[in-house]
Design a binder for these strands. Structure first.
Length: 439
RNA sequence: GUGGCUGUAGCUCAGUCGGUAGAGUCCCGGAUUGUGAUUCCGGUUGUCGCGGGUUCGAGCCCCGUCAGCCACCCCA
């Protein structure tokens, strides 16, 4: 009787070792950069009370209304798999009182969950790096955070364009909203169906509608940046000066409106056209009101999130994706009697942190094939001859390197072929080729 | 949530008018080769995504469903 095959839940991916190499490489790079800006990692629950997201993200947003994985706990509490990281991070900082008179900077890396229809660059379980800086209201922090975002993309080897905008203060935004509505209402009939309905709910969204007719109307609409409160206008001007001083190119996108309700003043986004419809790689902004809104002391804050799948997809397109680390040595046994000697040698080398793949007993032909498939830098076979004192041969698999010597001098042989002892960690293996080229 | 396209061997794919499931690759074994993987011979590739229906007969036609891809929407 055939048993029904189980498969992963829609939009949730298995990631195998060949791909994990790229992930780990990216994660390592990211952690190193975050250290340069003094961000500390915070590890947060994947599950939070539903109310947290409803209050933080905004009841009328799509995320809260139709994209959350929400279910009842056994005792009836409504829980939700986190659709983004900022809410949980702010909750944790309030709960543990880490912001009082302090300016903590946190980052987190991990899965987020949104029940959307999967497509290129969009999955139901996806991964983000999120960065949050608390307690600093000045535009200098905005510029530094954006500089960090620029460095992340540069380190990843990814080409993207920085777009910025200012949403102003909540009051200025509300006033602008009325002004925009006054402009849109007489033109309502010319808008697309979607825009007609979202006009009253969130008129700012009409500005970045893709329908040509709506774009025409949006192009002539009043600009939010022209109606900012004086403080926000000065903040925005200061940010632009700093970005220029730092040599970070940007464009002001008047229709850039973040999807989550908690943003104010600075919003920014790095976009690319290489990812189909999902062009946003990294996005963020200032959210000065959120901490108090969630019950904390009034605390300014700014942050951003990068989609790791999107970053990896761009790295792949641009040929920047790291490949799996290769073992250093393949050790093969030609018969049963050689097995003990081969395994003993492999263990001895692993004691010295040399990564070894071993195989056998098998025919000469099989071992050669296995050696090639292992992608090891060097190969070595042990058979009856070697047990009787014939020399072992270490051969470089994709080069001319070759060494002959006795079985117990193999580490010396590897050293003579350019391998450093003692080696540090197996995961540095893939740097071997590079390191050698530099010599 | 809506729409379009696609599901056949581990992988890439063919399969005519509805008439007994195919190729390449990969893998396994043997001979040869005895330190560069050659060459030759032989062999297994299978719930045709899943469930119904029509039919004497369905990989093919019809309905449903699941999954993937792409777009809308939304967003990282």
């Amino acid at each position: 009787m055939a048993v029904k095959a189980l498969q992963a839940v829609r939009g949730m991916n298995d990631i195998f070792p060949s791909e994990v190499a790229g992930w780990q490489n990216l994660e390592t790079d990211l952690r190193a950069l975050l250290k340069l800006y003094d961000y500390g990692e915070i590890r947060l629950p994947l599950l939070e009370s539903t109310e947290l997201f409803a209050r933080a993200i905004g009841d009328v947003t799509d995320i809260v209304q139709k994209e959350m994985y929400t279910f009842a706990d056994r005792n009836g509490d409504s829980l939700t798999l986190r659709p983004e990281g900022t809410a949980g991070c702010v909750r944790a900082a309030i709960q543990h009182q880490t912001m009082r008179g302090q300016t903590p900077r946190y980052y987190y890396m991990g899965p987020m969950f949104r029940h959307e229809r999967p497509q290129k660059g969009r999955y139901r379980q996806f991964h983000q790096l999120g960065v949050e800086a608390f307690g600093q209201a000045g535009a200098g922090t905005d510029a530094e955070v954006i500089a960090l975002s620029a460095r992340i993309l540069k380190q990843a080897g990814v080409q993207a364009t920085l777009q910025i905008n200012s949403l102003g203060s909540p009051a200025a935004r509300a006033a602008y909203r009325e002004r925009l509505l006054a402009y849109l209402r007489p033109r309502q009939a010319a808008l697309c169906e979607d825009c007609q309905t979202r006009m009253e709910r969130n008129p700012l969204r009409v500005l970045d509608c893709k329908v040509p007719g709506c774009q025409e109307i949006a192009a002539a609409a009043p600009h939010l940046v022209d109606h900012l409160d004086p403080e926000s206008a000065a903040h925005f001007a200061c940010l632009q000066d700093l970005l220029t001083a730092l040599g970070i190119p940007y464009v002001v996108n008047h229709s850039l409106v973040r999807g989550l309700d908690y943003y104010n003043r600075t919003v920014f986004e790095w976009v690319t056209d290489a990812l189909g419809a999902q062009g946003t790689v990294l996005a963020g902004g200032r959210y000065d009101g959120l901490v108090s809104q969630l019950g904390g002391q009034e605390t300014p804050a700014i942050g951003f999130a990068v989609g790791l799948e999107r970053l990896l997809a761009l790295q792949e397109i641009q040929g920047q994706l790291a490949t799996a680390a290769q073992p250093l040595l393949f050790v093969g046994a030609l018969d049963d009697n050689s097995l003990a000697a081969a395994w003993k040698l492999a263990e001895h080398l692993r004691d010295q942190t040399v990564s070894v793949v071993s195989a056998g007993p098998a025919t000469f032909k099989s071992l050669m094939k296995l050696a090639e498939r292992s992608k090891a830098h060097f190969q070595l076979l042990i058979g009856a001859g070697q047990l009787q004192g014939e020399p072992v041969i270490i051969k470089e698999q994709d080069g001319e390197g070759r060494w002959e010597g006795s079985l117990d001098a193999v580490s010396t042989g590897l050293q003579s072929l350019g391998v450093d002892f003692p080696r540090h960690a197996p995961h540095t293996e893939h740097n071997f080729a590079t390191a050698r080229r530099l010599k």
